[in-house]
Amino acid sequence: MSKGAQITIGVVIVALLLGWYGYTNLQGEASFQYYQNLGEFLAKSSTLEGESLRVHGYVANDSIHRDLKGKKVRFVVQNDPPHAGLATESTLDVLFLGLETPDMFKDGAEVVIEGRVQNHQTGTVFLADNLMAKCPSKFEAQANQGEPGGNMPL
């Protein structure tokens, strides 16, 4: 058998194995996530039920309720920062399945929530299994410089 044929066969076998592996392991898992801000999300939230989502918004003032027994946190996300003073037209109720909220998570914090959306008769609830936050205030410019969580700025 020529070297070319040997190599081709090897590559095909490896590609098939990898393809099979990827197919079996990534099926049904949180695969692609749509990253949207709240406005974009709300415009088509009815069609996104069951999809894996990543939504960006701001925590509404006085909306955080920690349920210690049930290990859940409820809060409301809106499209613009509360301190910006813009009228908020629509908001999203979020149920975070856990208590381990990030340090920066508080009223007005800019958040990214990951999870799925559930539509009930009473309204839409976002079930978040991941919650990320960054700081809301004037200090933001400062925090940007140091990128907490990654490597140093380059």
Binding site: Y35, A143, G149
Partner: peptide, 19 residues
């Protein structure tokens, strides 16, 4: 490119909110 990626904030990163 890595330097660019880190500093430009072109990809939303949990950590690097650079602008």
């Amino acid at each position: 490119f890595g330097t660019f990626l880190t500093r430009s904030g072109i990809v939303q990163s949990v950590h690097a909110f650079t602008d």
